[in-house]
Design a protein around this nucleic acid. Structure first.
Lengths: 201, 201
DNA sequence: ATGCAAAATTGCAACAGATGAAAAACTTCC
DNA sequence: GGAAGTTTTTCATCTGTTGCAATTTTGCAT
């Protein structure tokens, strides 16, 4: 099942990711060349592209599993849960997963997040990934509640919650001194959105 | 004030934009080369980059004025207007401006929108621009209501509304047969968000 | 272990986007 | 007309990305 071939691929993949992270930290994202990453991972430049479609993608290696998690949370809802309940769980689960650093050291996970938040090319890619995820989620949410939520309402709900949490957290990042504070910011944004913006001010 | 020099620059700028649009339509975004755009606008390839920082930017020529509009709408609020009222006006104003095709024919404006929505590189850039705008808006909203809205609440409000309208409209684009329908979709999303997601389902 | 087929890696060539620098062309203003 | 300043062009160079053919490595059956 997991032969030498597969193990080796995983090792190379990891080596590329870690080499990229280390170099990005040392010299910055734009300043790091693909040739350098490949060399640091002991692989030819060409081979990089059989693992990742583009330079930015080396930092988005777990996009697939994140989407799967979100979808499975939605699929595994209790029969009596309301859309709002499910959405809250989705936000919680996703934030938790974002904070977790599977396969990476804590420092690397943090570095990666910082890079994605500051480097324009990575930011753009991140926003695109998040956007596509939202589209999928909205569709799935409508499918989960075909009678209670129209497609437009499902999309509005997903977009509002994700949009609120995203902007609140990022706008507030500088003031947060711990993961807990970040998480609280997101939670507050989610609550406001569930209660309705009219309840503000 | 408006000498030959200035007029000529505007003409070149316009020529680049229109040449790009025409070529993108004919051959697609990726397939169109910068050299072709420059040639069609009768300038050297290098000159393109003194007008736009990158290939995608040729379709985001009016980002500045869009942000200015949003900011001025916020600045010009009536003293008694609530945050929710102002946000609604912001959404309305922005949608209206998005539908308007200043400087372009209706067909070109439509083509441009379609390109931004379908071409990944343009989509990513569009999301990035929108994101930066939201950050500015959130800050301005907090400054406008320093007592009633915390920075986090302001960010949550902007993120929720924009996120809801954005996702609802795009998720529903295929079903819309007119600008009016698109506008209605966005309005419905905004209402849901103002009322609170709990009111759903 | 040996040989064969499948899969992965490599090297090479080519192209497009982007940037820096200096020469050439054009505007402005006197 | 000519000096001063701005814009455009030309040229060289770098990097990301892709196609292709050659080579190496792995899985597997004998």
């Amino acid at each position: 099942m997991v032969g030498l071939r597969e193990r080796k691929k995983q090792r190379t993949r990891r080596a590329l990711i870690e080499a990229a992270l280390r170099l990005f930290e040392e010299k910055g994202f734009e300043e790091t060349t693909l040739a350098e990453i490949a060399a640091a991972a002991d692989v030819s430049t060409r081979t990089f592209f059989s693992y990742f479609a583009a330079k930015e993608d080396v930092l988005f290696y777990d996009t697939g599993s994140r989407i799967e998690l979100a979808m499975s949370l939605l699929a595994g809802r209790a029969p009596e849960e309301s859309p709002a309940d499910v959405l809250i769980k989705l936000i919680d689960g996703s934030l938790q997963m974002a904070a977790a650093y599977e396969e990476l050291t804590f420092e690397d996970a943090e570095l990666r997040m910082r890079l994605i938040l500051t480097e324009p090319a990575l930011q753009a890619k991140g926003l695109l990934v998040l956007f596509d995820t939202q589209l999928q989620l909205a569709r799935a949410l409508h499918d989960a509640y075909p009678d209670r939520l129209s497609p437009t309402e499902a999309a509005a709900a997903v977009g509002a919650l994700v949009g609120a949490v995203k902007l609140a957290i990022i706008a507030n990042l500088d003031n947060c001194r711990s993961l807990q504070e970040i998480w609280d910011t997101g939670r507050r944004a989610a609550e406001v959105t569930l209660a309705g913006l009219r309840s503000l001010g």
